[in-house]
Nucleic acid binder design. Structure first.
Lengths: 340, 340
DNA sequence: CCACCGCATGACATCGCTGTCGGACTGAGC
DNA sequence: GCTCAGTCCGACAGCGATGTCATGCGGTGG
C-alpha cells in the first residue's frame, strides 16, 4: 500500500507538498502539482482515511443511530443517506440504539469518544430526545436532525409538516364522503404521533365540522401488532367508522388485514389510509393510500447541511430549518363511502 | 478528552503500561494495574479507536456491503449483525453497492484501502460474486460469507440448505393435497434462486411423482413487481395451479395481492408459500407460510468466525462451513386443496 | 547594492496508541 | 559478593497524514 511518503519520493518533493496537492491547498506551482498527480496515479495511491482521522481528531464518517428496523422508515432513510454520502465522498457509520436512553448513553459516548464521530444525523424518534441531544452537544458533535417535531435552535433540521399532511389525509376522506373516520395514533414516544393526531382533529375544524368523536381515536405504537389491536377496537364499535387513518403504513396494513379477516371488502366497506409510503404500502392488497416523504431530498439536504457546517463553523449558531414537501399518494385502499 | 498520556501521568506510570493494562498484556503487577484502572476511571478515559486503527493498520470496524434494501433480507441481516457486533465490542461499517460490479470496484477498493477495512461480511448476492471475492482477497481482506451458494474454500461460510427448504415447502403442499404447484423463481443473479428451483423439482422426484409441468415454473426477480407478473402468468393459465411457491416473501405477497384482485379466496382457492419470513410475511392477509432463517444465529456465528480468525491467523486456510437450521413456518396462506 | 516582500516548498513535530528493545530491580544460587 | 534469570516497566520510534514555522528564491523599490 503506497503512502504519501512513497508518492513524495517518486515525485521528488516532500510529503507535505503531496498533502497540499491532495487538499487543493495554498500555492503549489502547476508543474509540481502535475508531477505529484502523476506519481499518485502511477502508484495507485489512496490516502489513508484512518491516519487522516487521527490527525484531524475525527473519524472520517458521519454517525447515525439506528433502532428497530421494523416499519422500514429508518431503513429507507439509512439507504438514502448512504447514497447521499456516496455522492459527497463521505461515509456513514451506524450505531445501534435499542431500549431506553439510559442504556445507550455509555454506548453513544463510546461511539463519539472512541469512534471519533464528530458529525451525526439523528432520525425520529431519537431526534426529539433532549437528553440525547444534550449529550451529543456536550461532546461537540454536530447534529443534523431529520424530521424532528420541534426544530432545534442549535442543529439544522430537515422537517416535514406532519400536521398538514394529516389534514390532507382527512380532507381526502371528506371528499369521498366519509364523516366517521377512525384514527390509530402512533407511538407515544414519537412526537410525530401527536402532530398527526392534531392534524386529524384540525381537519374537522377547518372544514367547519363538529369535533370528531373522541372514541374514534385509539392508541397505537407504529407496529403491525399495535395496528391490529387498534383496528379491532375501532371495528368492534357499535357504530364503526367508514374510514380509518392509521399513523403509519404498518398499522394501516394491519387494519386492512383485520378488516379482511372480518370479511369486509376494501375499499367499499372501509377506506384505509397510512402514512410514510413504506414499501408495504404498495405491497398489499388493496394498495395503500398514504403520505410520501421525499427521503432522497431530505437526506441529500442533511449531508449538504453538514458540508456547509464544516465549511463554515459559524453556521451551527444559526441553525436552519429546511421544510420538505410531502405528497398524498392515492391508491386502492380509499374509495367513496358506501351509500346508506 | 483524556488520552493515554493523561492516564499515565495520573497513575504515575508510562503510557505503555497503561496500554498494557488495557490490552491485558504481559505482566503488570496487580498494584500497578489497579492504580491504572483507577486513573482511567477517574478521567473517564476511552481509548481512541482511530489512533488504534492507525497503529494497527486497520480500521476498527467490520465492513459490510449493502445493496438494494427492498425485500428486507439485507436489512434484517444488517440489524442482526449490528447486534452481534455490539455484543462482541466491534463496529460495522457499511458501503453501498448498487448496479454492476464494474461500478463498485473502485469504491470497494477505496473502502478497503482508504477506509482500512480488513474484515468483511458478505451477503447474497455479493457473496457469490467471484470477481468481488478475488478483489477482496487481493487486498487481504478477511471475508465471512453469509449464505453463499457454494461455500468458498478460502472464507468461512454460514450457509443454509435452500434446496432442502424448498423441498419441505413442496412436501407441505403435497400433504395438503396439492399436485399442481406453480413456482415463481428468484432473481437469476442470486444463486439461491437455482437451489430453490431445484429443490422444488426434487420434491416431485422424492415423492415418486412425475416431473412437474415446466410451464408451472415462471421467472421472477425477488421484487414485488416481478412477483405480480409471475402470479399473473400462472393464474392466466388454462389450468392454473392450486398452490404457488414463490422464491421469496415479496413475490408471495404479490401473488396474494394478484389473486385477491381476481376475486380468489385464500387459501381456499389458492395456497401461497413464500421464503425468508420477512416482516411482510406476517403483515399481510392471509399471513404467509414461509421458510424462516435464523438470522441472529447466522450473524452471531459470522462474528465469532471473524474473532476466531483474528485470534488465529491460520484459520483462514481451513475455512469452515457452518450450516444453520431453517424452519417451515405455517401460517394462513396455505390450506387443503379444494375438492373438485 | 541592500532591505524587504511574497511565493513555493521543506523540516519537524504531532495526533493517540503500541511494538521493540533494553534497563532496573528482585531474589536465588554459588 | 557476584552472576543470572525472571519480572516489571519505560524510552523510543513509528503508523500516515498535516499544521506550524522556517527557508530559499526571485523580484521590487529605494
Amino acid at each position: 500500500m503506497a503512502t504519501i511518503h512513497d508518492v513524495a519520493l517518486r515525485a521528488g518533493v516532500s510529503p507535505k507538498t503531496v498533502s497540499r496537492v491532495m487538499n487543493d491547498h495554498e500555492s503549489v506551482s502547476a508543474k509540481t502539482r502535475e508531477r505529484v498527480r502523476l506519481a499518485m496515479q502511477a502508484l495507485d495511491y489512496h490516502p489513508n482515511a484512518v491516519a487522516r482521522g487521527l490527525r484531524a481528531q475525527a473519524a472520517p464518517a458521519v454517525g447515525i443511530l439506528m433502532g428497530d428496523p421494523s416499519g422500514g422508515y429508518q431503513t429507507r432513510i439509512h439507504h438514502a443517506l448512504m447514497v447521499a454520502c456516496l455522492q459527497n465522498g463521505r461515509h456513514l457509520s451506524a450505531e445501534l440504539v435499542e431500549g431506553d436512553l439510559a442504556g445507550w448513553q455509555d454506548r453513544i459516548r463510546a461511539f463519539v469518544t472512541e469512534g471519533g464521530i464528530r458529525e451525526m444525523v439523528l432520525l425520529p424518534p431519537e431526534c426529539d430526545f433532549a437528553p440525547l441531544k444534550a449529550l451529543l452537544r456536550e461532546h461537540d458533535v454536530r447534529c443534523v436532525l431529520i424530521s424532528p417535531t420541534s426544530p432545534d435552535s442549535l442543529s439544522p433540521s430537515i422537517v416535514m409538516d406532519d400536521r398538514a399532511a394529516a389534514r390532507e389525509v382527512v380532507e381526502h376522506l371528506f371528499s369521498l364522503g366519509h364523516e366517521r373516520i377512525g384514527h390509530i395514533a402512533g407511538h407515544p414516544d414519537h412526537a410525530a404521533s401527536t402532530l398527526r393526531r392534531n392534524g386529524f382533529n384540525e381537519a374537522y375544524a377547518a372544514a367547519g365540522k363538529p369535533r370528531p368523536d373522541p372514541a374514534l381515536i385509539v392508541p397505537g405504537d407504529f407496529s403491525f401488532k399495535g395496528g391490529l389491536a387498534g383496528a379491532q377496537a375501532l371495528l368492534d364499535m357499535d357504530d364503526p367508522p367508514t374510514a380509518i387513518f392509521a399513523a403509519n403504513d404498518d398499522m394501516a396494513a394491519a387494519t386492512c388485514m383485520e378488516a379482511q379477516r372480518r370479511g369486509l371488502k376494501l375499499p367499499d366497506d372501509l377506506s384505509v389510509v397510512g402514512f410514510d409510503d413504506a414499501p408495504i404500502a404498495a405491497a398489499i392488497w388493496p394498495s395503500l393510500t398514504t403520505i410520501r416523504q421525499p427521503f432522497d431530498q431530505m437526506t441529500q439536504r442533511a449531508i449538504t447541511a453538514l458540508n456547509a457546517w464544516s465549511a463554515n463553523a459559524a453556521l451551527g449558531k444559526a441553525a436552519a430549518t429546511i421544510l420538505t414537501q410531502h405528497s398524498l399518494v392515492i391508491r386502492e385502499s380509499t374509495g367513496p363511502v358506501r351509500a346508506g
